[in-house]
């Protein structure tokens, strides 16, 4: 299959994820959307790797998966800490710091 389809798909994943980060209010869903964005980038990387017949992109994607996992762990940790302290879990409501 021609590479363009993969690139279009990756761009769509990225954009949907980005839109989700902007629009959704629950932090866990926002973290999910961040994963979507990273997946979009990873897919683009994979398709280019296939295009060039080069292993670099695929190795890169393996690293990206690890990094994404680490990021989510920290994010969820912060969410749990906030939940335990009864801080409302609503990204739009994080008004303490507005100024």
């Amino acid at each position: 299959m021609a590479i363009e389809w993969y690139l279009v798909l990756s761009a769509m994943l990225f954009s949907i994820g980005f839109a989700g980060v902007l629009v959704r209010r629950n932090p866990v869903v926002v973290l999910l959307c961040l994963e979507l964005m990273l997946s979009g980038g990873a897919l683009a990387m994979l398709s280019f790797s296939r295009l060039h017949g080069d292993g670099d992109g695929q190795v890169f994607v393996l690293m990206v998966l690890v990094v994404a996992a680490a990021e989510v762990v920290v994010g969820l940790g912060l969410v749990v800490a906030m939940f335990r302290r009864r801080i409302p879990l609503d990204v739009d409501e994080m008004k303490e710091l507005r100024g």
């Binding site: 964005m37 979009g40 683009a44 990387m45 280019f48 990206v64 990021e71």
Partner: peptide, 13 residues
């Protein structure tokens, strides 16, 4: 970071 990654993919391409 995600934006950076996508940009890297394009440059790699």
């Amino acid at each position: 970071s995600a934006t950076l990654l996508y940009g890297m993919a394009l440059i790699y391409g």
